[in-house]
Nucleic acid binder design. Structure first.
Lengths: 135, 135
DNA sequence: GCTAAAGTTTAACCTTATGGGAAGGTCAAG
DNA sequence: CTTGACCTTCCCATAAGGTTAAACTTTAGC
């Protein structure tokens, strides 16, 4: 009795694009889904949950490779939550490092922008810094 | 008497890779540089300064397109620093927004990771959240 | 002066995650 | 039967590089 959805409907329901759903299937993230006689992909409720899973993973910035691992763990009833947590904490660390890098850049940019008067004259601390001999 | 450098030397001196210097030339960021009779690119001091400029711009996270604009402004003696500042402030804003997004993600990940015991049992708040019905 | 190593050339393909479009098949309504 | 909205596969493009390979040039050793 499960309502089967075409890829467009599944896309709308999951928040992914049809394009990406095909891509996820082709790259092995999703198993090949059944088709109609004429070749249209059909998605059931279980598969729709997987699409939601992927979208939430992407929203949290996990790479497709990480999502692949997470999906496999999710599908495995004998998984150890240790493995899930390890992936999440690695990603957490990556995110923290990226934040630190961006904050560093943000500070420099802010300082430079404050030193550039931004009027009709050509003199500009930003260009001077980019051109300057010292790093 | 300006010492001319081959691409490898220019790469070492500027901190870019030879590959990227060619890439920047091919994509129009740099003008075509003179070659030896046998086709080797040669860089003078002025061009080396441009390479440094590009590297510093990349370090600050400017896109090649933004660096292209900045380089053109730098080369233009009649520039208005207003234009430079506008590019920098737009980038600053982009960086700030990226930081905010990552901090949001960081908070969610931290909360989820703290709720996952990370042992040999399969139950895991992280998977539950990715799979869960509510966003 | 010869040879071998190191450097350079172009070109092509790989990456990540996603968008765009062409060319053609299918389906439902009118 | 036509029209329009879907769907299919396939190829191309993005940003900012990395890697590899074949062929040529330059440099250093001897």
């Amino acid at each position: 009795m499960t309502k089967l959805l075409t890829i467009g409907e599944a896309a709308k329901a999951s928040g992914l694009s049809a394009k990406m759903i095909r891509h996820y299937e082709q790259s092995g993230l999703l198993e090949k889904t059944p088709r109609t006689e004429s070749g249209y992909r059909l998605y059931n409720a279980q598969q729709l949950r997987q699409l939601h899973f992927i979208r939430r993973g992407r929203q949290l910035g996990f790479s497709l490779e990480e999502i692949h691992s997470l999906l496999n763990l999710w599908r495995d009833p004998g998984r150890e939550s240790r493995e899930v947590k390890q992936i999440a904490e690695q990603h957490l660390q990556d995110v923290a490092q990226k934040i630190a890098e961006l904050q560093q850049i943000h500070g420099v940019l802010q300082k430079l922008a404050s030193q550039c008067c931004g009027d009709s004259h050509p003199d500009c601390a930003i260009l001077d810094s980019l051109a300057g001999p010292e790093t």
